[in-house]
Simulated scan of single mutants.
Amino acid sequence: MAYNTLVGSALIILALSMWHCQAGTITCLQPGRVYQCPADNCTVVGFVRAEQDYPCDCYVLRRPIQNAVTENPRWYHASLPSGRTGYVNAFFCAGVVPHCKMR
């Protein structure tokens, strides 16, 4: 009986850890804006803080806009504590997450 409980608990922990790894996180090194789309000229939906981790499911690559503040082509699709999601440039944050599938 105790063995079955131990094995069941181990399987649950393994499944949760696999789910957490798939979700991914980014760490922001400095504060930055989060946009509705992956470009500096989109609507701002929130902000990330320095030295904070944020859930992130994937990234996209986009050619930087001429004379934009951010020149990095990588944009992370992140979730904010407010429940909103948006794109933050790799100039502000970094992490290992997969490339986004077609949206």
Results as ranks from 00 to 15, higher is better:
T43N: 09
L6R: 00
C37W: 08
M18L: 10
L16P: 09
L11T: 05
P31V: 03
L29H: 06
H99P: 02
L14M: 10
E71Q: 15
Q52E: 05
R74T: 02
C37L: 12
L61I: 11
V69I: 05
R62H: 06
S79I: 08
W19F: 13
V34L: 09
R49A: 13
V45D: 08
V34D: 01
Y76T: 01
E51V: 12
V48A: 10
A2C: 07
Q52L: 00
W19E: 06
G46K: 08
H99I: 01
G24V: 09
G83E: 02
P73K: 03
H20G: 01
A39P: 10
W75R: 01
P73Q: 00
Y76C: 00
N67G: 02
L14P: 07
C58I: 06
M102L: 06
Y3C: 00
G24N: 10
Y59S: 05
C37H: 13
V60L: 05
Q22D: 13
G46I: 04
R63F: 14
I65R: 09
P73E: 01
L16R: 09
C93I: 07
Q66L: 02
R33A: 13
T25D: 15
P31R: 06
P64C: 13
V44P: 02
C58K: 01
T43F: 11
P73S: 07
N67H: 10
G86R: 09
W75V: 12
S82P: 02
P31W: 02
C58T: 03
D53C: 09
Q30T: 08
A23Y: 11
Y87K: 02
C42M: 13
M1V: 03
G8Y: 01
Q30Y: 00
Y35Q: 09
Y59F: 14
F91Q: 15
Y87F: 14
E71W: 07
N89V: 09
L14V: 12
G8C: 03
N67C: 08
H99G: 07
G24M: 13
A50Q: 04
E71N: 14
K101A: 03
R63V: 12
W75L: 12
